[in-house]
Design a protein around this nucleic acid. Structure first.
Lengths: 186, 186
DNA sequence: ATCCGCATGTAAGTGGTTACATGATTCG
DNA sequence: CGAATCATGTAACCACTTACATGCGGAT
């Protein structure tokens, strides 16, 4: 909830609108699919932020009558919105505070039995493997992109790679701990 | 701000109190020093959570008159608090949503010039190197610990290692992008 | 003399999450 | 025939951050 999160969310929405005009529902899907590996957003939050972007003149709405479906409120990026986006893209991010509940568990895990500790390590490993494989599947579904001629697609692919690498480093670390614990029963 | 964050914060505080009784101020320092690589907490938040833990009977307070300094309100862990801690330590964490503003920047960086892109990559690399070195310094300041006889200390050390590895994987990834961009001027 | 650290809190503002609310279409 | 998806929002609750508030002691 830090204040900046609100700004980042607005900028990400502007980023999506820069790629293509979208309805609130389109954005909800975009967050669930394309952006899940680096940001999450609730739908209430997305609608609220969209409304503010329109109120501030950074986007404008166009109502597209639904053909046998509800009407869609499509949002278009305005010039001031694009300016805001570019300014943010080129800006330095102040370092984000870490928030990792699992690491916290390990930090205080002294009070656990070896069996319990192995339990949470194994569960975490399985989750990390799943998450890595899910990102790999997305990566494979995307066409290869050339860094000079298709920079946008290439960069988006790179962000998936970052997620995959992070998960792999995490898995190796988990295995290290597992090894360090040894074979003792307790 | 997700609801769980509040629970995690309470458990981390219980974890610290399990190691040793502490005042609110002690906890503020503990978060700044020992826990910065996996959790952050504001002091208002810490005092509020401490008050609730006491109200719920999971901790009790002891006022220690200050010797030439303000009184300290030292918090001691109660049995029910220890139960809560252990239960949480052994529980599976539901996967946390990613929130990384820098990755978001890269994802939408298509609109930037190569120069601007290099700028944010370099800034980020410098920040990551600093963060890694800071963790390494902390790691070096800690005595080595044996996984079987000093499990608590060993695990706490491992969490630092996790942070260091994550930063290193991140730096490699940044360098990869830098290389992929090539030498072109624009 | 001033700033920083110790030490404890409270109040106000802001935003995130959850649940509520509605209604049509499509798929099994 | 029920469940899921499309599609849009609102209201209530809750917690995090920022700023406010106070006061002593030691260092520069």
């Amino acid at each position: 909830m830090r204040f900046d999160d609100f700004v980042v969310l607005a900028r990400i929405i502007l980023g999506f609108l820069a790629i293509s005009p979208m309805s609130g529902y389109d954005l909800i899907r975009a967050f669930r699919t394309s952006a899940a590996h680096f940001w999450s957003a609730d739908k209430a939050q997305i609608y609220r932020t969209l409304a503010r972007l329109v109120a501030d003149g950074h986007a404008r709405t166009e109502v597209v009558p639904g053909t046998g479906a509800p009407d869609r409120v499509v949002h278009h990026l305005e010039a001031s919105g694009r300016d805001l986006l570019i300014e943010w893209l080129a800006s330095d991010q102040k370092p984000q505070a870490e928030r990792d509940a699992f690491t916290a568990q390990i930090f205080f895990a002294e009070s656990l039995t070896t069996g319990e500790l192995r339990g949470i390590l194994d569960a975490r490993r399985a989750a990390a493997v799943d998450a890595r494989d899910a990102l790999r599947a997305v990566e494979r579904s995307l066409p290869n992109a050339d860094p000079t001629t298709q920079r946008g697609a290439w960069l988006r692919r790179k962000t998936l790679e970052q997620g995959i690498r992070a998960h792999e480093a995490h898995i190796e670390w988990l295995d290290d701990i597992r090894t360090g614990l040894g074979d003792a029963a307790t």
